[in-house]
């Protein structure tokens, strides 16, 4: 079976879903179910008595076959991210952590140095470390070397819906990587997710594309099908590209010949 392997875990679904920005918890839960995902991201935040429905641990826990991947959003340094990971593991019991360190709220680009430092520490502590990074092949390799379970380069800026702007760099990362490459951030359409999978990504992570869709559950289902189709195409092996036309029908002339 074609499974996504991360640390000691295996998943049949290659779609990872974020849980932010949904209009309410029920819409999010419906999208999670429709997506068929087995790995969802969550964020830590302060308890607020007025927003009890925002506490997602209970509702997500009730969906069978779901593993939580807490992120370190809000951290702007490696030490903050490590602390967030420890708290999240205490709360979830999950060994997964999405290392996400973006100090500038204007562009939300991940800090490569702090991300590397935090990932190294957390991998050493036995976490299944999934760092969110810019599409940087050198950084991706360094993260692999310190024991990350995957790398998650961005397709374009978080929540921008600009798609696979980084496809050239993603190609290099995929070619060089000995660990799963997961496109995280920037995707807008299922077509882009399929393309990422056809390129050889091991999975995609989407949030805004589903949460901000007109019908989130339908869009989650569409992403699920697109990811499966893209993976199937990758496994089937795409035809080679050619710089010129290659006929599919015989070109031997007979219509114009006179008997």
């Amino acid at each position: 079976m074609d499974l996504l392997r991360l640390g000691s875990y295996s998943f049949s679904s290659r779609l990872i879903l974020g849980t932010g920005k949904f209009s309410n918890t029920q819409v999010m839960l419906d999208a999670v179910r429709a997506s068929g995902t087995q790995l969802v991201t969550v964020a830590l935040r302060r308890f607020n008595r007025e927003q009890l429905s925002d506490d997602l641990f209970g509702p997500l826990y009730e969906i069978s076959g779901i593993t939580l991947m807490p992120n370190t959003s809000g951290a702007s340094t490696a030490s903050e991210a490590v602390r967030a990971a420890h708290i999240a593991r205490e709360l979830s019991g999950s060994p997964f952590v999405k290392v996400e360190i973006h100090p500038n709220p204007q562009h939300l680009m991940p800090d490569p140095i702090e991300t590397f430092e935090a990932s190294k520490i957390l991998a050493g502590e036995g976490f299944i470390v999934m760092p969110y990074i810019s599409a940087d092949p050198v950084l991706a390799k360094r993260l692999e070397e310190v024991g990350c379970a995957s790398v998650m380069p961005l397709g374009s800026a978080i929540g921008s819906g600009q798609g696979l702007k980084t496809s050239g760099m993603l190609d290099i990362i995929i070619r060089e990587s000995g660990i799963p490459v997961i496109v995280d951030a920037g995707l807008r359409s299922p077509g882009e997710a399929a393309l990422a999978m056809e390129m050889g990504c091991s999975a995609v992570l989407v949030n805004s594309a589903v949460a901000a869709a007109g019908n989130p559950a339908e869009m989650a289902s569409a992403f699920s099908e697109a990811v499966r189709a893209g993976r199937k195409a990758f496994n089937a092996g795409l035809m080679p590209k050619s710089g010129h036309a290659v006929a599919t029908s015989p070109l031997t002339s007979f219509l114009g010949t006179e008997a």
Partner: peptide
Amino acid sequence: IEVLVFAGGG
């Protein structure tokens, strides 16, 4: 003292 829970996040 911080009391923290899981909320939606990507």
